[in-house]
Nucleic acid binder design. Structure first.
Lengths: 147, 147
DNA sequence: GCATTAAGGTAAGTAAGCATACTATTAGTT
DNA sequence: AACTAATAGTATGCTTACTTACCTTAATGC
């Protein structure tokens, strides 16, 4: 049942994200926001690093960045030092959008745990953090190097 | 960051599910398992009820049952009392597969929280349960009646 | 009875999310 | 230098996951 609980909570998380950001006038997914935040914090990173930072696989992030590029929010450029890699950065529009959405996203975090008392919430998040931190050290993550 | 934590934990949950069940020789997704469990517990339910029981929307469950039917694990039949509804039940193969997979799934639940001490685990699950239970009463769930 | 509304299922479209395989390039070894 | 291994990105395919719209059938209103 643990898996089911986690799924429900995650489902609610994405749902709240969609509703809140849409109500604020934005059309964005949680992954797109995460990717843009990572790119903002590390301009000109390559896609693989973006994927690693937010714990997705390369293929998924490639698609996400495709869509962000189509919307004119990010720009891709082949790296000069490594011609395999593509450096990604936010465009002006991307920066503007990110700074407009960020406060909305910050505020909705509280809503995710609306069934819990403040104290419980803190406990829950601390334990979640610990459980998630443990994953970073596990060898068996879904980052999928070519086997 | 709460949303990100929940995503990570859910991601790990599905990953562990895949790895464990695959290692045990099965080819099944978490949703398929959840659907089959629900159908097993309530033979001849209609799809909408299945969706409600495991907190998915009708369209997704329709696709999941499509694939389960193709694999010969479930059988669909138009309800006699309501010709809109389709009753679903497990086939012999479905029952066999479910009972073979169930212990594997039961065992892997512990692994999901492997970063926490037993006591912490209990606390975490209790809070997760409470948070999830709260969602059931919220009006804003993604069940999507035709608006 | 009959019109309206609601509900079950499906179809189409979009976006994740991941596995696998492939190309191009880089790094490391000998 | 040549060979090998590793890495970045992409392509393909499959399965969620949800939205919207639609068709059919049931329930409700009057």
């Amino acid at each position: 049942m643990a898996g089911h609980l986690l799924r429900r909570l995650h489902q609610n998380s994405t749902h709240v994200f969609q509703v809140r950001t849409k109500k604020a006038g934005f059309d964005m997914t949680p992954v797109q926001f995460a990717a843009m935040s990572a790119i903002h914090a590390h301009p000109d990173v390559d896609q693989a690093t973006v994927a690693a930072m937010i714990a997705y696989d390369r293929a998924t992030i490639g698609g996400v960045i495709d869509r962000l590029e189509q919307k004119g929010l990010v720009a891709r450029e082949v790296s000069k030092s490594d011609r395999r890699a593509k450096q990604v950065r936010l465009t002006k529009d991307g920066e503007n959008l990110l700074s407009a959405v960020s406060p909305v996203v910050r505020d909705l975090q509280f809503e995710l745990m609306s069934g819990l008392e403040p104290k419980e919430r803190a406990t829950f998040l601390a334990l979640a953090k610990k459980a998630a931190a443990h994953l970073a050290e596990e060898p068996a993550r879904p980052h999928s190097p070519d086997k």
